[in-house]
Design a protein around this nucleic acid. Sequence first.
DNA 1: CAGTACTTTCAGGAATTACTGAAACTTCGG
DNA 2: CCGAAGTTTCAGTAATTCCTGAAAGTACTG
Lengths: 190, 190
Amino acid sequence: MNLPPTIQSFVLHFGEMGSRWGINRTVGQIYALLYVSSQPQCADQIVEALGISRSNVSMSLRELQAWNLVVMKHLPDDRRDFFTTPSDVWEIFRALAEERKKREVDPTLTVLRELLMETPRSDEERFAQARLAEMHGLIEQVTTWYDDVKLLDAERLASLLSLGSKVTKLLDAKDRIVSIGRRRKESGKP
Amino acid sequence: MNLPPTIQSFVLHFGEMGSRWGINRTVGQIYALLYVSSQPQCADQIVEALGISRSNVSMSLRELQAWNLVVMKHLPDDRRDFFTTPSDVWEIFRALAEERKKREVDPTLTVLRELLMETPRSDEERFAQARLAEMHGLIEQVTTWYDDVKLLDAERLASLLSLGSKVTKLLDAKDRIVSIGRRRKESGKP
DNA sequence: CAGTACTTTCAGGAATTACTGAAACTTCGG
DNA sequence: CCGAAGTTTCAGTAATTCCTGAAAGTACTG
């Protein structure tokens, strides 16, 4: 590996973190390299930069494509595939969230649904099912929220984020307004 | 392993998912078992239920404790340690989010900060640093939001979630109100 | 302070996952 | 249809991670 120091540190760090992120070292390194490169890179350049085998690069690029974390580009009169990462970091964030949900959450949701269909055969199972129902409910709430929010454009997402928990102040304000309205209606009745 | 079918399926599923979640199979299985058990379990009961070695149970329970995903209990006149999961699923969710952030995000944030302090020695590095700055900015925005929101009580969190992207409607409403206010002020000036 | 009931540590073997190099495959220009 | 330039597959090996059983540790009881 022969890279400028900043880039090298970043690439190595991503490689190490890779395992914690559910991708492997090579995939992490390649991603990092593409992310900080100003020009799209082809497989051989990656081999050169990271000092890993050609086939490993090939497989890792496939995996990155499966994650939608890299974009393939073609130069005129050049048959090689060149790769970059999406330039908008929010796009990257979205892609990551989407894939992780698909791999880490959806299968569990499916299993939970299946298990909740079964008829419990003992108190033990009845208790277990109640717990599963709780978990199912939570995951569903969170994923529904996520499905909803992921459709927002970058700008709104940013303003939502920067608002943080202050959202609840808005919520409280809304609740007050609603409850005033309700009180008016109710007081008219009896 | 000799468990009622529903519980067994759930335990096995969690075991398999474990690897995708950055914990190992045994840890996943133990967690699942504790989660659906109505009574706190001691190490030997877990050994019995899952058919794994005593020492493996011991190590895995340690790991779960490090993740704050299990609670240790003691019965009167019994020296054994008994374990359960926090009963509130939101508590569990929080613990998970917190630990994952600590392991998967914070180290990267640190590295990014360090690398951004260095003086770039080439155009390549200058470009790379700009990208790192973008990534740093995004992570910081998201984690700031998270730090803010995690302080909410369960009820508010739930209402926030169920609101989903409708929050932006509130936001729009707020923007309108603010801009009306501004217009009034401004029109008073010239 | 010895005995007991329980828990933890750790070295080494088992299982899993990642990486390589050779060979097979694809595609395109001539 | 051949050869060149590039990509992918895959079997075998290397590296890592996981699990076990034996031994050591800890702490309470009488």
